[in-house]
Amino acid sequence: MKVDLFDFDLPQSRIALRPVRPRDAARMLVVQGSDAPFEDRGVRDLPALLNPGDVLVFNDTRVIPAQLEGRRADGEAKIGATLHKRIDLRRWQAFIRNAKRVRQGDQIIFGGGVTALAEERLGDGSITLLFEGEEPVEVLLDRAGTMPLPPYIASKRGVDAQDLEDYQTMFAAEKGAVAAPTASLHFTPRLVDALDAAGIGRAMLTLHVGAGTFLPVKADDTDDHQMHAEFGRISQTTADQLNEARAKGGRIIAVGTTSLRLLESAVDENGIIQPFAGDTAIFITPGYRLRAVDGLMTNFHLPKSTLMMLVSALMGRDRMMAAYAHAIANEYRFYSYGDSSLLLP
């Protein structure tokens, strides 16, 4: 399938550089079926838009300060590193800025006295970094790293202290993501209380989001694109909760494409969600038959991105292109800090 089929023109003014406050004050475009009118609603309307017995599935991953700035130990080259996947206790795969100046065995000195050795150069262009010393890598990153905001935000205004709070969901618990599961950024304790009162359930899973999820698709055809693997976990308790809810007639609504991708990685041919612990590189495009979810709450995605392809698989390409045209015309805010959509096939 041609990647250009998922392209659209987005005015730069529609890219949100800060979230709305409070978080649940964001707008939400409701897209149902193949021909129902689009509904311009708000995130606070969510309890009224779902049914008692439905279950929202959240990703409880926590973003780590995975953006590092430094230089080669010989002082000759400035190096930027964005960690995107843990290999073991001391090694991470990283996308490197100025990678042509990094050779195998080079020591890179980051802030706070943090150093790492460049090891293997991988086929996707990333490099394995071995962090030196005895302190846990998480401690080193807290000292030397910054929040890894997407480039469409960071390049326009930089990263500041407010992002430490803004780019973390209220459910964040398990450290390991290098990008936020941004659909969950809209939730507040007040909204969660309203969902509880409406009889709408909550379930948790963990997918440590990697920067590769948001990389542009460089291939001309989707068959030629390779997804980066990310580690995920679904407990037996969560799997049982979701299967029971569905057996009783409830819908499984993924909050965010990360939750959807992990659920679809764990579901069997009969639509039963199984416990899961491991890597997933699932790539969902139109023609894929979704088995695990009945709906999706998600933000508005980049043109020609794997996420635009995923929502098109759920709702149909033509339907999503029309929805995005509506969102742009009605001045919805796009991307990580932007507004939301509720997609119900």
Rank of each mutant, 00 (worst) to 15 (best):
K2L: 00
V3G: 02
L10R: 01
L10V: 00
P11S: 05
R18I: 04
V20Y: 03
P22V: 01
P22W: 05
R23T: 05
L29D: 14
V30P: 01
V30G: 02
G33H: 08
R41V: 02
V43I: 13
R44H: 07
N51I: 02
G53R: 00
V63K: 03
A66D: 14
A77E: 02
K78R: 15
I79Y: 14
A81H: 12
R86E: 15
N98P: 11
A99M: 08
A99T: 11
K100P: 01
R101S: 01
Q104T: 00
Q107V: 14
Q107N: 04
L117Q: 10
E119L: 15
L122R: 07
L122E: 14
G123T: 12
D124W: 06
S126K: 12
V137R: 07
V137D: 06
T146Y: 05
M147G: 02
M147V: 13
L149E: 13
P150Q: 04
I153K: 03
A154G: 14
A154L: 12
Q162P: 00
E165Y: 11
A172E: 04
A173C: 06
E174L: 13
K175S: 14
G176E: 15
L185G: 01
H186A: 02
T188G: 07
P189Q: 01
A197S: 09
R202W: 08
L205D: 11
T206I: 03
L207M: 05
A211M: 07
P216S: 06
P216G: 05
A219V: 04
D220Y: 04
D224C: 02
Q226G: 00
M227N: 13
G232P: 03
Q236A: 15
T238P: 06
D240L: 13
N243Q: 06
G250T: 10
A254D: 13
G256Y: 06
G256D: 12
T258N: 03
S259N: 09
L263Q: 01
L263V: 01
E264Q: 10
S265L: 08
V267P: 14
E269S: 15
G271F: 10
I272Y: 07
I273L: 04
I273S: 02
Q274N: 14
A281N: 15
I282A: 08
Y288D: 12
L290K: 14
V293Q: 10
G295L: 10
G295K: 08
L296N: 14
F300M: 08
L307H: 13
M309I: 05
R317E: 00
D318K: 04
A323V: 03
R333K: 01
Y335H: 13
Y335C: 01
Y337S: 00
G338F: 10
